[in-house]
Design a protein around this nucleic acid. Sequence first.
DNA 1: GCGAGCGGCGCG
DNA 2: AAAGCGCGCCGCTCGC
Length: 659
Amino acid sequence: MIEFIVLSEAPDGHVHASLLGPDAAAAADTVVFPREELARAVARLEREHHPRWVWDDTARWYPGLLAAGVRIERCHDLRLVHTILRASELTATTSLARSALSHWDQAAARLAEPDPDAGSTLAASPPQTALFDDTLFAVVDDPPGRSTTGQAGAAHTTNAERTAAGRGRSAAAAPTTNTERTAEHGRGAGGGDAAPASAVGASNGPTVADRSAPAEEPDELVEFRAQRTAVAEATDPSRIALLTAAESAGALVAAEMRHAGLPYSAERHDELLEELLGPRPQRPPGARPGDPDPRPAKLEALLAQIREALGDPTANPDSPAELLKSLRRAGIRVDSTRSWDLTRIDHPAIPPLLDYKKRARILTANGWNWSDTWVRDGRFHPTYIPGGVVTGRWASEGGGALQLPKAVRSAVRADPGHLLVVADAAQLEPRILAALAGDRAMAEAGRGRDLYDGIVASGAVDTRPHAKLGMLGAMYGGTTGESGRMLPRLARAYPAAIAFVEAAARTGEAGNRVSTRLGRTSPRPSDDWLDLRDAAAADGASEAVRSRARQSSRSWGRFTRNFVVQGTAAEWALCWISSIRRRLWALGDGPTDARLEQRPHLAFFLHDEVMVHTPAALAEQVAGQLREAAAEAGRLIFGQAPVEFPVTVAIVDRYDQAK
DNA sequence: GCGAGCGGCGCG
DNA sequence: AAAGCGCGCCGCTCGC
């Protein structure tokens, strides 16, 4: 009985597949084949054994398999799982967490420090009734793999740091200049899927070459055993086991979505741009590569209006610094050029300026260059990065997939004879909070209805917008304005939920870590943060230092407060898409020779929303599966907790028609 | 000329 | 409705 197959690449370029039994002990067999035979060999072994594939990085192995038409059911992504186990409070005492940094750790050294402080509070582990039922174990043993390329879990860093680090390590291309950014990724990442197939086509099947155990076991096998041990020794093995399975399954989804792409009409996109901006400007004949594109006609017209109204023929809305000066010269008192700040100003230059900003944003972020770079043959192929966000959310790279503006969503169109099934988890984060906190009143508010409506019905607040604002403020740490005013009312009506996020905030303010429901643990504060705290605590610390320390402490508290909710919501979403993936594959006639992209498949994922591209005849069945998968995700993570996780489902042929 | 940092804004 | 969380990416700016 083969349960796992560990893939590793030998220095000579051959691939070693180690076949393991359920205990993952010594390999029962080792199959060796040239890299070119990978897809053929994997397809055969998948058929024969239905194993869980164990590999270092799904983003390294799976795209080529998909390009060759090979889909696998389950995997274990060593790199992603290592990152989780290294940092988790649930595995802090295991030898994996205490071992020296290795190539399994990303650059984030901070994450890897052995856990010196025992005092951290596990914010996400309040006693919960009926935690896991038997289905958990069925699914844990059954879960599809997932993986990514992610640098995941890098310590909490700024955008700039993250971007630089992420780029450097992903792929050979690490473009850094502004001009390179788009172009490089367009070829490297976006188009990467299409080519590799040819490598696999050769003639004879895989060679069973070497039946004797190799002199040394592959590094991957050693690491895999260490990870299994860490999970088994974890404080709560079932949670962390579910997380590793879901994380790995997500990696498979990410690779498959990039492979299939989002159906996207470049023609419709052109129409949209023409409506918003005018005809695509032609670059002058002598233009050199670095030269900016000419401004489209409608922007040019708005620019003239702005300059006229300001009495400033050189005003430049593309430069915040210059624009600020121009506004002030015109007697407008503002201290930023943010649209939201400008809306409150009564001046004839403001309406065209706001209009200009709106349209210019579409041009730069999703204009003709974007579509040239990222849309090929009717598909938008972004790279998803599972675990790319500290909280466990996915990040994306290239094309801004997770920021696709609503203004262009009418270009997302099902193929002829197909439909898009778009599902959105309703009020996911407050529902996650209700389940985390075991807040029965909030669970009740969300039963069978919109959660915010339920909060209004309970009498806690007067309107739905207030309920939403108040809950977001509670989860983000907002204290001022309307949101802050709602908090005492919510705290009275839902004391458990509010106390839960407050506790997470206090934990972070004290410099300790918090964990999600399944055990993903927040990073430690930076050395600078700790230094500031210590400086403020020292005798004779200045008021200025103490004030900065307070500020930084509160800020980190807002981060940990949100971490438990956003991170657990991300876990729910991972379980949801894993379940969807499995259900879609079984849909219709079940597995056939048809390729992934010719069957109902996930085409887009946006934190709490999914899109399936499906033959029209299966759309209703898909919708049902999306709902059932959501309920399954809730049971998996929270057991019989009384919180519902409803999804709104729309069956449409264009994305903009969904809600 | 390059590239890090910033302001700004899109998404959840 | 009023700002609190998490991202990616753009153009501009400015120091090297």
